[in-house]
Design a protein around this nucleic acid. Structure first.
Lengths: 254, 254
DNA sequence: CGGCCTATGTTCGGTGACGAACAGACCCTC
DNA sequence: GAGGGTCTGTTCGTCACCGAACATAGGCCG
C-alpha cells in the first residue's frame, strides 16, 4: 500500500523506472525531468535527432508512421509500462516513425546522453530496457498481422482495451477522427463500428469522449491480438528483478 | 577482390559475423557450426526455447506469424545480413512467432549460451547485434503499415526485390502458394498479380520457379516500403566499425 | 443566447481481396 | 512413358473497406 502522502508525480509511476535497482535509479533520478505532455504533441519526427527519452507516467504516446500517400498507422503504443525512444540506446538515434502524444498527461524525460551513459554500464538498466524492447517488438509484430487479417471493429476493440489498461477511469478524451488515424482507417469506419458497440451497450460516447461501459463486451469482440500481447508482455516483464521498496524520491521516505 | 581459393563456406559470408572485430570473432568462431538449412525447415516455433542463434550465409529465413484462424503473415525476413534469434539476447528466450527457412542454403549456428556470453561482455558484439535489431524493427514497422495500406501486387514486388537482394542470380525456387503464405494473402491473389507482372515481361515463372527479368519493373511497381527499409538498413549498418581485413578462418590466410 | 467550428451520422458507388470450386498443366516418380 | 500429386489458371458471388459528399448536431466562444 502506498502512503497517502505520496507526491502526485513520481518516477515510480513508470514501471521501468520503478523496476530499476536502487543504485541505478539513484544515478538516473537527478536527471529525470517531469514534463507535461499535451495531446497531439510530437516527441519526435521521422529522421529527427532524439534528444530525450521519455518515460510516460499518466500520458500515452503513440508510435505512428505516415506513408507517402499521407495514410498512416499506429505501430505501437507506449504508456507507463514503457519508454519512448528506444533507438537512442539501440543505435542509430532516429527512426522512420514518429511519436505523438495520444492521451495528455505527464512523463519524465532524460537527456539522451544520461540514459546512454547508464545503459552503457551494461547493468540492470541495459537488461531492463532490452527486455522492454523485446516486449515492444512483440507488440509491433502483432500489429502487423492484425493489420492484415482483422476487421476494423476487432481492431477498434483491441485498441480500446489497450488504452483502457492505461486509463483506469475508462473515460477517454478522444475523437473518432483521432482513433481512425491511429488505426489507419477511415473515420466513417470508426463511426460505424463505434455505433454498433454503442447499440450493444458496450461503450458510450459523445463529441470527443468515449467511455467504456462493459469491458467484457470489448474482450469478446476484440481479436486475439490484445490477449496475446498482454500475456507476452506480462511474461517478459514479470521475471525482472523485483522491486522490494519503491524508490525514495526527493528525500521523502516512502 | 577475394582470392579464388576462398573456401565455399565461410562465416564471413554473414555480414554481422564479418563486421565483428577480430578479438570478438575469434572468441565466437570455435563455436560456430556450419549447418545446411532446408526449405521449410522450422528453426523455432512459437513459445519454444531457442537453443541456437542462426547466422544465414546463403539461406533466407522468414519470421512468420500464424494466428488462431490459421492465417499467417511474414513479419520480416533474415538473410546473410542478419541473425535469427534476437530474443535470445534481448531477453525472454522465446517469441510468439516462428522462423522458417524460405530459401534453402547454409548458415552458421551457435549455442545460445556461447552467444549470450559474448553479448554480455558488452562490447562490439552487443553493439552490433543491437544495431541489427534496430534495423529489424524498422523492417517490422514498415511491414505493419504495408499490410494496412498497400496492394497485393505492390507487396509482391517489394517481396521479390527483397528476396532478389539476397539471391543474386534472380532465380528463385518458390511456388506461388509459398509466396502467398509469406505475404498472408490468397494464392489466387498471387497468381493474378504474378500474371500481370509476367504479361509486362517483368518476371517469368514456371512451376515452382520464379525468375526476375527486369528489376526496374519491380521497383516501379513496388510500394515505397522496399526503398525505405533499404535506405534505413544501410544507414544503420554502414557506420559500424569497419572491417579492414576479412577474418582468417581455419588457418587459411585470406 | 446565438453563431460557428468541428465532430458525428449516413449514404452511394466503386473496388480489392476473400472463399470456394474446378479445369488444366507441369513434372517427378515409378 | 504413364500416372498422380501438386502447382497454376480462371471464374463466381460476396463483403469489407474506401472515397466522396452531404446532413445533423454538440459544444465552445463571443
Amino acid at each position: 500500500m502506498r502512503p497517502a502522502a505520496l507526491p502526485i508525480h513520481s518516477p515510480n509511476q513508470n514501471h521501468l523506472l520503478a523496476a530499476l535497482p536502487k543504485a541505478e535509479f539513484d544515478r538516473l533520478a537527478p536527471h529525470l525531468e517531469l514534463v507535461p505532455m499535451r495531446l497531439g504533441e510530437i516527441l519526435y519526427e521521422p529522421g529527427g535527432q532524439l534528444q530525450h527519452a521519455y518515460f510516460p507516467t499518466t500520458s500515452i504516446v503513440s508510435l505512428h508512421y505516415v506513408i507517402e500517400s499521407g495514410a498512416s498507422a499506429e505501430i505501437a503504443g507506449v504508456g507507463n509500462e514503457g519508454v519512448v525512444g528506444i533507438s537512442l540506446f539501440m543505435g542509430g538515434n532516429t527512426t522512420p516513425s514518429s511519436a505523438v502524444v495520444q492521451t495528455a498527461g505527464h512523463g519524465y524525460r532524460i537527456e539522451r546522453r544520461r540514459l546512454k551513459e547508464e545503459f552503457d554500464r551494461a547493468g540492470a538498466t541495459l537488461r531492463l530496457l532490452l527486455r522492454y524492447t523485446q516486449a515492444l517488438i512483440t507488440q509491433m509484430t502483432q500489429t502487423a498481422v492484425c493489420n492484415r487479417h482483422h476487421s476494423v471493429e476487432q481492431q477498434l476493440c483491441r485498441w480500446l482495451l489497450v488504452t483502457l489498461d492505461r486509463v483506469p477511469s475508462g473515460e477517454l478524451t478522444m475523437t473518432q477522427e483521432l482513433v481512425a488515424s491511429m488505426l489507419g482507417v477511415r473515420r466513417e469506419g470508426i463511426t460505424e463500428a463505434a455505433g454498433r458497440l454503442r447499440d450493444e451497450g458496450i461503450i458510450g460516447y459523445r463529441r470527443g469522449h468515449i467511455s467504456v461501459l462493459k469491458r467484457d463486451g470489448l474482450e469478446n469482440s476484440a481479436c486475439e491480438c490484445y490477449g496475446v500481447v498482454k500475456v507476452e508482455f506480462d511474461r517478459l516483464m514479470s521475471d525482472l528483478p523485483r522491486v522490494e521498496t519503491l524508490h525514495v524520491v526527493g528525500g521523502t521516505a516512502a
